[in-house]
């Protein structure tokens, strides 16, 4: 592992690669080492995790029933083809 250290400004640009687990091992080690020592970056990564979780919980609009009827008609026609 190289002893080149990571600044906070560099770290925030690597968050997605870190969370996607696409960082090479040495870069990942540097990232984690920085995180363990830096409260600001630790909280930044936590904020990013919350952001992703909340985005994933957005509720779906209910399916408009008119569209459903049209599609069901299409399905019935398809069956007869």
């Amino acid at each position: 592992m190289s002893d080149e250290t990571l600044s906070c400004q560099e770290l925030v640009e690597l968050v997605t690669e870190y969370l996607e687990e696409t960082l090479p091992p040495d870069a990942r080690a540097r990232f984690e080492q920085h995180l363990s020592k830096c409260r600001g970056c630790h909280q930044y990564v936590e904020q990013m995790r919350v952001t992703i979780r909340l985005t994933g919980m957005l509720t779906e609009d209910a399916l408009d029933s008119r569209a459903r009827d049209t599609l069901l008609d299409a399905f019935r026609r398809w069956k007869q083809e």
Binding site: C8, C38, G40, Q43, Q47, V50
Partner: peptide
Amino acid sequence: RFTATHHWRVDAMPGNWE
């Protein structure tokens, strides 16, 4: 939000959302 050495400025650090 960063200092000249690219670290968080003390008054601009991300908050704790917990």
